[in-house]
Amino acid sequence: MPSSHPPSAVAETGRDQLRVRAARNPGFPLELDWVRELRVNRSAAERRAGTLPRRRTVKREWQAAWLLRALTLVDLTTLQGDDTPGTVRRLCAKARQPVRRDLLAALGAEQLPIRVAAVCVYHTLVPTAVAALRGSGIPVAAVSAGFPAGLNPFPQRLAEIRASVEAGAAEIDIVITRAHVLTGGWEALYDEVRAFREACGPAHLKAILAVGELGTLTNVARASMVAMMAGADFIKTSTGKESTNATLANSLVMIRTLRAYGERTGHRVGFKPAGGIRTAKQALDWLVLVKEELGNDWLAAPLFRLGASSLVTDIERQLEHFVTGRYSAAYRHPLA
């Protein structure tokens, strides 16, 4: 029996979407009323987040295509103390070619632009990554502003941002001062993010809210709103270093706040969950969440990223399974 689909959600996105860079969010004067009126009912949010992966699934060709799309949304990340130029160059090679060519051919996807959205590293490794990615069109993102705790001297944090931009980073993932959120210091938070945004200049700013340390989902919503008003191009869940990182529930709350900001200002802001996203199934859950709550427009690199390190290999294994019908092994795919 034919099932009917909402055409509005199906028809709009095309290849064009991938090329169009959304106009940057210029920010908005701080409206404390918009912040304080935000209320999140945790149980209701968790119920929605909990049932969504059970309400939608993609199978066969659809799953393969969605996984390819997911790869193009990955901020391929390494943030280890033992990162060296060698490991970063290996990561960049994987970023250019996240799926084996024979698999792409078998999927009929050779002509598709299958490469990750960005490579994300610490400042010191920005020049290495920039060099390794030259000509690929893949931007380098640097974590910055005292990542991960964000408690370094403020001038130093600004200087760090400027240094990374100067070194070639096109995207800067900053961390906010959690204390501003926990004490209701919204003006201070606004000023901080605003200053970071100015320091970024042409580079895009991703504001990491470290939602696992904000105490409540209502705080997550309020911090999201302030960061967007201060001009964040993206709001991002976590550093990956907190005990709780991206979950569907905290992502849902950020996405809804992002939508509310868009309704009020007309500006589009991107969303990036990060931390703990390791499996293809998880990636699909996030794609479903974004599709359902924001629509297909957001399933493109200018507006959505998946911060991840080991995810790419799992997606590759699932793609091989689709092609061969046999379950794959990690060692069959080039190391990141």
């Binding site: 689909h5 199906v10 939608r56 993609v58 199978k59 659809w62 295509a65 999927l107 598709l112």
Partner: peptide, 16 residues
């Protein structure tokens, strides 16, 4: 449906 087409449309497809 081809994978390349679904990559663009991001349709759900059947999941019986």
């Amino acid at each position: 449906m081809k994978v390349a087409e679904i990559f663009e449309s991001l349709d759900y497809g059947p999941a019986p």
